[in-house]
């Protein structure tokens, strides 16, 4: 902690007060975290933490500061912390976001910033939810390539146009921000949810895949695509910018086109 390294002398003459670490503006925030620990109380509660943060900090940095310096019992998931792994989806100021992709300076820092677990999945502790129902739906749509016939000796060739057809839905990182923003999913846990449909879309419209009909049949279920009420919460919530509602509409159209 105390081993401070002296910066090497700069070769450029800078006027006093310019450059160095103090350049980034700091500001004070109140982080309001939804706390739940079933071993202590069945009731959830709000905890406020007052922090001084930098303009480059994200909500995840604020959570780290709380966990590492103030209250080690605050629990949340995160892995890569750079918007790739999809572990830290949470409800920030009432909207599903990745904590690692939400800059504090983009939020209203005059009011407390609320951080809650994503909705519709059972909360285990604080910001950690049980993702099993989410992954159950994901597995049911068979998110892997199924092909008939002989395996080619070389790669499976695909035209640029054919690849483009499902490009948008390949971006999914399975963070569950979309599924847990869906009002239908909150009240009907049986609904497949946007993420499962997005990942089905990725294979249904892949020219190399031969199980599109099977997946359409699965999603033609009572709890399949027809549960979608086009609220667009999923499209707004997706941290990868996937046009989720558009993808669901395309699956709906494919089911109808197949029937005719």
């Amino acid at each position: 902690m105390t081993t401070e390294m002296a910066e090497p002398a700069s070769k450029i003459e800078l006027p006093a007060g310019v450059g160095g670490g103090g350049e980034i503006p700091t500001f004070n925030i109140t982080l309001r975290v939804r706390r739940y620990n079933p071993e202590v109380s069945e009731e959830a509660r709000w905890d406020d933490f007052k922090l001084t943060m930098y303009g480059t900090d994200r909500v995840l940095d604020a959570l780290h500061k709380v966990k590492w310096e103030i209250d080690g019992s605050v629990s949340f998931r995160r892995s890569c912390a750079h918007g790739i792994c999809g572990s830290d989806a949470m409800r920030i100021n009432g909207r599903n976001r990745l904590a690692c992709k939400t800059l504090l300076k983009d939020l209203d820092t005059t009011k407390p910033i609320t951080v809650e677990p994503i909705k519709g999945l059972p909360v285990e502790k604080d910001l950690i939810v049980d993702m099993e129902p989410f992954f159950q739906s994901y597995r049911e749509i068979m998110p892997f390539l199924i092909s008939k016939g002989h395996e080619p000796t070389k790669e499976r060739i695909q035209s640029i146009e054919d690849r483009e057809r499902f490009d948008d839905t390949t971006k999914c990182i399975l963070c569950a921000a979309c599924t847990s923003s869906c009002p239908v999913f909150w009240t009907d846990g049986q609904y497949f949810g946007p993420a499962a449909i997005v990942n089905a879309h990725r294979f249904i419209f892949d020219s190399r895949d031969d199980a599109g009909d099977m997946r359409l049949e699965i999603l033609n279920d009572k709890e399949g695509v027809w549960r979608c009420r086009t609220t667009f919460n999923c499209s707004e919530a997706c941290p990868r910018g996937i046009q989720v509602t558009q993808a669901i509409a395309e699956v709906k159209q494919a089911i109808l086109a197949r029937k005719m």
């Binding site: 100021n93 909207r95 919460n233």
Partner: peptide, 8 residues
């Protein structure tokens, strides 16, 4: 809190 959805 209430989910802050938008127009949709």
């Amino acid at each position: 809190t209430l989910y802050r959805g938008r127009e949709g």
